[in-house]
Design a protein around this nucleic acid. Sequence first.
DNA 1: TAAAGAATGTTATTTTTTTAACAATAGTAC
DNA 2: GTACTATTGTTAAAAAAATAACATTCTTTA
Lengths: 226, 226
Amino acid sequence: MGKELNKIPDIIISRLPVYYQHLKNLQSSTKEYVSSEELAELTGFSSSLIRKDLSYFGTFGRKSYGYDVYYLFQQISIIMGFNYKKKVIIIGAGHLGQALAYNKGYTERGYKLISIFDKNPKLIGLVINDIEIQSVNNLENFLQNNKVDVAALTVPGAAAQKITDRLAAAGIKAIWDFTEVPLKVPEDILLEEQLINEGLCKLSVKMNQQRLDKNGTTEDLSCGQK
Amino acid sequence: MGKELNKIPDIIISRLPVYYQHLKNLQSSTKEYVSSEELAELTGFSSSLIRKDLSYFGTFGRKSYGYDVYYLFQQISIIMGFNYKKKVIIIGAGHLGQALAYNKGYTERGYKLISIFDKNPKLIGLVINDIEIQSVNNLENFLQNNKVDVAALTVPGAAAQKITDRLAAAGIKAIWDFTEVPLKVPEDILLEEQLINEGLCKLSVKMNQQRLDKNGTTEDLSCGQK
DNA sequence: TAAAGAATGTTATTTTTTTAACAATAGTAC
DNA sequence: GTACTATTGTTAAAAAAATAACATTCTTTA
């Protein structure tokens, strides 16, 4: 009767990709078991937090041994839904769209890239990573004939809302958005903003902090009111 | 005498790029003032939280009016250190590296892309966005003659640690890392992991949740212990 | 000029998140 | 087989973050 069954806290969701990545990397090493302390070392999260996060989903470890790397990786994959097959398309075959087309990350996460769309006639027909770029005019038709789970949006900002509306009308339920404009979407559509420059922003803030600290500036960061 | 002057909480830092982006977009609209309530609408954060975040840095608003869009944008830019000039290089001119070379986001954030490196002879000499790809053999030499603030790392995972070591030895202080492998860096180097597939991961988790919810599954997500 | 309305900045409260502590348990050494 | 060690899963405590509430102040209107 509860409306939000099993609602995983966002803060935990945000750490899952990090656990996933490190467990995946650990597999190429020879380590069979890993302790929460070692994972803490790798991820930068505290061992206590890691044990707590994992215990949210169940109990995966072995006392005095730690976690079986492969088993935990499998479990995390299941928690993240990677064992479910999902289809993704890319809309916008500019430089970023093309880079995403070459992205190796789909398969291991249960995704399959099935088409790329663009409106530029010079790009239409071009084959990238075995997928032929097709005209965005075909979008609705394609979506009618193919169950697509996620649309990656890499069109110019100016076109973003229009495409989004078309996607929504065609029944898409999740958008992975790389355009840096605010999109309006119906409530039932999942929208994931991927701010490509986020890292640059954070680095700038932190370098700025270091600079201010070094100068021994006690002063407020603000510049007074207007 | 405090060691960490003005240490901005990470959680606030993580929202700054979002404020920045929306304020930037608001400028192309005709709105001169924006209220915390309207920003809440745009960002998804509560108005109370937004006012609190801003008050951490100073006082920028006007009672009963809201915030001057342009002024607040400027202030946020200053807080983020965008008024300081920074130089960035890209190492690895594969698809992602090239897409980053075409990225329009540098200038407005105070960055200037000054070089791209690769080891593939077929790429060396190629000009992208007015910048000639040069051999990674020149890396140390280049860094000696140019003050570079940030290195974007888009090399294959296998090469990542070696390049990182060379960057560290050459005195780089910040790395924007797109390789999905764990990098070891000296403590004084800022490392920003940009997990390119993070959005895909989150969407997968959330779609999985919806599926479980729909099935009315009360059962634990875990699959029992080994 | 006074009253009403709007929206900030800030304080108090609540909630969430993290850390710390530890009991339980499995493995190891002797 | 017993003592010792390691490491989990969990509970309790502390810290951090978010929300709610509101006093203040500015603007507008009459």
